[in-house]
Simulated assay, not measured.
Amino acid sequence: MNLAIDVGNTRVKTAVFHGDNLIEVTIFPVEKIISEIKFITKKYTLNDAIISSVAFISEKKLEKLRKILVLLEVSSAMKLPFHNLYKTPKTLGADRIALIAAATKSFPNKNVLVIDAGTCITFDFLDKNNNYFGGAISLGIEMRFKALHKFTKKLPLLEKKLLDNFIGQNTQESINSGVVNGVIQEIEGVIGQHKKKYLDLTIVLTGGDTNFLSKQLKSSIFANQNFLLEGLNGLFIFNKNK
């Protein structure tokens, strides 16, 4: 068995795998990473792990993790199961690398658009010849609410709600419509752009807002909140077998 560790901006998500089989997923705050990893490794007697991080992890914490596990750290320099045609490969985030790795394994020989709706919304495209070209990075739902509150003097800070009507009839409804409907239209628009060029497009939606958004999107999608973790596991196996 091995452990996949996804360090996000505010939380850590881990998954224990036995081969390709997902055994358990755990989510906890970033500040508890050492104690939680210790608990998981003792529970399952784990020795190996792969880690992806979009947030800064101090070298001190990494050293502590390396004392607990043999760590494989995701980067563009590692062996990848796809052709990385990104113009600045060293700047490609570890999370996006893992997502594309998941796409290569789950949908071989397919044109795939992976949408990760979390703190940011990322769009990543892999063609049927296993070529990764890049994508787009946009603001996530929570970030949009916070931006409206921070950069204006009177708009309140709200939490997302499902849309009853895209026409807001008060300030709260108008903010919610602007953010939520804006995100939905943006995602549908990006999907539409890709479909014009690639008719046989497979669309994957993942990330923290997967369940919220999947109920409101009209496009046919595969919704999988653990897609990144599956990609990390795939990268681990791919590099271990090389």
Rank of each mutant, 00 (worst) to 15 (best):
L71T: 01
K79T: 10
P89Y: 07
N84K: 14
K67W: 00
A77I: 12
K79Y: 04
A94W: 12
S58V: 07
I97G: 05
K79A: 11
E59R: 04
K79I: 10
D95G: 14
E73I: 11
A94Y: 13
S75F: 10
A77R: 15
R66S: 13
P89S: 08
E73H: 08
L71A: 02
L65C: 02
A77Y: 13
D95L: 15
I57P: 12
K79P: 07
L92R: 02
K87I: 12
L69N: 11
H83V: 10
H83F: 08
R96S: 08
S58F: 04
K87Y: 13
Y86N: 10
I97S: 06
L69E: 07
R66P: 04
F82M: 01
G93I: 06
L69C: 03
L71I: 09
T91F: 04
M78V: 14
A94K: 12
K87P: 00
Y86V: 04
L62R: 11
I57K: 08
K87H: 15
T91E: 15
A77S: 15
K67E: 02
R66N: 12
K87S: 15
L65T: 00
E63Y: 02
Y86A: 07
T91W: 06
S76I: 01
T91H: 10
G93H: 05
F82R: 01
S76Q: 01
S76H: 03
